[in-house]
Amino acid sequence: MKYCKSIFLILLLSVTIYSCTEKIDIKLDESYARLVVDGSLTTDTMSHIIKLKSSSSYFYNQPSPIVTGALVSITSGTDTYNLKEDSAGIYRTDPSVYGVAGQTYTLNIKLPNPLGGHTDYSATSTLNPVVPLDSVSLLFHPDWSEHGIWEVKCYVQEPPTIDFYRFMILKNRTLLTDTLNEWFVTDDKFFNGNYTNGATVAYLQQGSAKEGLAKGDTVTVEVNSIGKDYYNFILDAQAELRGSNPLFSGPSANVQGNINNGAIGFFTAYSTTRSFAIAPGLKKK
């Protein structure tokens, strides 16, 4: 489906080639403040983070208000990990914690003061099995855009089950896909059970300081096997962030998270595997 969406964007560009955009003043009503949860538990052994914030009015124009002093824990039923608030609004597990495939984890939050009418919130997420990544390759297209574009390709034996993936890209250990709208997510509708013979998972702009590659740079691809509800959450959020137009957009609608009691956001458990490729030098034109 992701491919279809990128095609729509290309088609849309062709339609709106003569279109213009400009800022417009719009008066919006204020909505009540809600708890916003953003966190995950993965198969990596590390300190896992849950961030708690509050929602604000749309034109608040400052970083989201932080929610401090909450009691946060993650439990698998047998093991329970209590999270410590080491900086304001950021709650961490012990660095030795890792998630196990097949387990269902529950996040429990108890706030010191009610937010959005509640103090107690929870969410559950099941950790999906790992899909081993064979290898990653890089292909440079010098004629795509002015400075050229790197295509990041991925080789995986896709299992026969119905799966959903998120791909994160790192350049020399720096996360390039650091915001939600840069995450590439896909289902396996077109690949189910096949060997993905170099499916494209990212495009890197050589002209960009952040994404451009020099000889010897390492590009790491991290594959997260995620749940269907988190996959939908990301796609729906991305659709809302892309903005609306009368051709392809349905009515704007709230993005459905998995936290109860009307809180916004998501708690997800997922498995991670990685592979990397080293950038070759480019031939001089």
Partner: peptide, 25 residues
């Protein structure tokens, strides 16, 4: 008629809109 945001939340370093009722604007 159109649906506009009346609030926002930060998730995944992105600002996610929280919407009004359907077609309220």
């Amino acid at each position: 008629p159109v649906t506009f945001p009346t609030g926002r939340a930060t998730v995944g370093n992105a600002i996610i809109p929280i919407y009004s009722n359907r077609n309220a604007y």
